[in-house]
Amino acid sequence: MGQFYEFAAQTLSGQEQALDDYRDKVVLVVNTASKCGFTPQYKGLEALYQKYKDQGLVILGFPCNQFGHQEPGNSDQIGEFCERNFGVTFPLFEKVDVNGHNAHPLFAHLKKSAPGILGSQRIKWNFTKFLIGRDGKVVKRFAPTDKPESLASAIEGLL
């Protein structure tokens, strides 16, 4: 399994985005959902992005409908919801699976690089976060319950 930069994903507008374009950035990858108890974290994620983007942070949101069908919308609906309700300006991608046989290869890589509790390679719920250093290596995995503002010191340490 390769580095973060070797992957690509489809943006909400349907264009392929090479993750190599984020080389030398600190990246926070988050699996998101619009109808989840953690959905208000979009606001905190956007605040982190605004605070640190000029220093090299990028946040990448990957909507996922695998947990309680909490992301039922299509790409247009997801984008409109995030912008209207939370002012999201960080990059969002098309819906992906993060677990199972159809998991996006990026998430297979992230889970292998930073397993969860007891070495689990499954993502348990929406808003699991993976912090990636400027070298493309996964530094840390954060649980859905970890609020975005609690990640600030870890992010600052990499910037």
Rank of each mutant, 00 (worst) to 15 (best):
F67H: 01
H69W: 05
V26D: 05
T32K: 09
L45Y: 06
T128S: 00
D20L: 12
Q15R: 10
S153K: 11
E80A: 15
R141P: 04
P105W: 01
Y42P: 12
H101F: 04
A114L: 01
G2N: 11
P115V: 07
A152I: 05
Q77W: 04
S113L: 03
K147M: 14
G116K: 10
D21K: 08
F62D: 02
C36A: 13
F127I: 10
A108T: 14
L28Y: 03
T11R: 13
N102L: 09
S120M: 12
L60G: 05
T32V: 15
T128P: 00
V88F: 11
V30G: 04
F107M: 02
R134D: 12
R122L: 11
K53M: 01
P91N: 08
G61R: 05
C82T: 09
W125P: 08
A47Y: 10
G157D: 12
A154S: 15
G79H: 13
L106D: 09
L159S: 06
V58G: 09
S150M: 03
V26G: 03
E71V: 10
C64V: 02
Q70C: 10
D135C: 08
Q66D: 13
L28R: 00
N31W: 00
A143P: 03
F93H: 08
G87H: 04
D20P: 00
V29R: 02
G119T: 10
K111P: 00
L48K: 11
M1K: 11
I155N: 08
N65K: 07
P115C: 06
T32P: 13
Y22S: 04
D21C: 03
Q3T: 15
T39N: 07
D146F: 08
P72V: 15
H104W: 12
P144Q: 13
T11L: 11
N31H: 01
I155W: 06
F62Y: 15
T32A: 14
G133A: 14
V98N: 02
